[in-house]
């Protein structure tokens, strides 16, 4: 039986980008407003899951040929690397630093090493969620 999922597919095409943008916003807003790597990552994973539901596994794997296990590993490296990086500056493991800089276009921006750590969390959350869903979904 062929299911008719035209509406779902059309809506997904539009809404996917909105969710993705929102998830990135959530990620960057994390230090000041609700959000952060964990929620942002979950939201991105949610968008990808929507894609999986609207289209099938194979199509999605063709559009986004990402190995999520490697993504998880990269995320872990980011987080551990941020922690270990502080050792180079003679401070304990996982000490964060922040500073305010003036960037073109963006104006005064506050930069944190915590964001680097959070990128790791973000990637791990996406990687883990998608690995689990993909392996279970693909299983025949």
């Amino acid at each position: 039986m062929r299911t008719n999922d035209l509406i779902l597919q059309t809506v997904t095409k539009v809404i996917l980008f909105i969710i993705l943008l929102f998830s990135i916003h959530l990620f960057f807003a994390g230090h000041y407003y609700p959000g952060g790597g964990f929620i942002g990552g979950l939201m991105t994973a949610g968008a990808l899951v929507l894609l999986l539901l609207a289209f099938d596994m194979k199509t999605v794997a063709n559009i986004l040929p990402v190995n999520y296990r490697i993504m998880t590993a990269i995320g872990l490296l980011f987080s551990i690397g941020t922690g270990a990086g502080s050792l180079l500056f003679n401070v304990p493991f996982l000490t964060h630093a922040f500073t305010d800089v003036y960037l073109p276009l963006l104006g005064k921006t506050s930069l944190h090493t915590a964001v680097l750590f959070d990128i790791g969390v973000y990637l791990v959350v996406i990687g883990v969620t998608m690995t689990i869903i993909q392996t279970i979904g693909e299983d025949e």
Binding site: A29, G30, H31, Y32, Y33, P34, G35, G36, G37, F38, R69, T72, A73, G75, L76, S79, I80, G83, L94, H96, H112, A114, F117, D118, G120, V121, V124, V125, G127, V128, T131, I132
Partner: peptide, 28 residues
Amino acid sequence: GKNMVNVILVDFRGFDTLFEICVLAIAA
């Protein structure tokens, strides 16, 4: 930071988060 939850996650209790994502990765 102004978002206390997130600051706790990435900074004050960063070690916990680090181990949590390790556990997540192992589970996956």
